[in-house]
Amino acid sequence: MKIVVAMRQLADLVEELEVNADGTDIDRDFVKFVSNEWDEAALEEALCHKDDGDAEITVVALDEPDVDQTLYTALAKGADRAVKLTGHDPEGWIRTGDRAAILASWLERDDFDLVLTGVQAADDLDGQLAGVLAERLGVRHAAVVVGFHDADSAVQVEQELGGGTVAVSSLELPAVLGIQAARQTPRYASITRIRQAQQTQTIQEVEISAGGSLGGTVRKISPPKKRGGAEMLEGSASEVAERIAELIRSKGLARS
């Protein structure tokens, strides 16, 4: 089975994020970029399938800060091929529509059975990649996937619906899956192995020009109002309990 894993870079959430000068994006100059954690899960699940049988894995990513590191890491972990798509501004905010268009235009030339990608990314303002990409390619898709096995021309998919309930369906191949979790935590690629991959393997670069708008116009980005410690609930045990009960109900988590 030919599996393509679409990976991407993302501002590291451990960083303190700041807003850029015109207030429409984060300031990208000083943040560190890491690979999207759900994409890591997608890669891991692909690798598990490869461990189990005959999957051939291609990782593909758009040119973004430090993306080579992510691709080499994937190679070190056992991916067979790495592709970097260029032809866009690697420094800016690549919105979901453009990302999907670029990937789709490359995928249309490449042969694949399954595309795996992370179920979401923290800057998916314009929706999640899997569905958009599938629609562009005219293939089936599913999000929040927690497991799958392939059966000839179809893939049997397990999607988590929340609270541990799982929906099982069968999708005709090819398909795009948004992976929520792999069966195990993503494996570790030792730095020694990554360095080895850097020396012995190459990342194939493909220039693509494509775009597709999907999102609206970002008017402004700002950090939410800063909170300064807890709001203390005063009063007797019963009064406090009532306030807490209200808080719980306001989150819609309990009815009574």
């Binding site: 590291d12 972990k77 570790y188 030792s190 192995r193």
Partner: peptide, 21 residues
């Protein structure tokens, strides 16, 4: 063991943190 990636998940995330941050 490290080469084969066989370790505690908490150790793995510590090493990952060290390598990125």
């Amino acid at each position: 063991l490290v080469d084969r990636g066989e370790m505690d998940p908490t150790l793995q995330s510590a090493l990952q943190n060290i390598s990125t941050q």
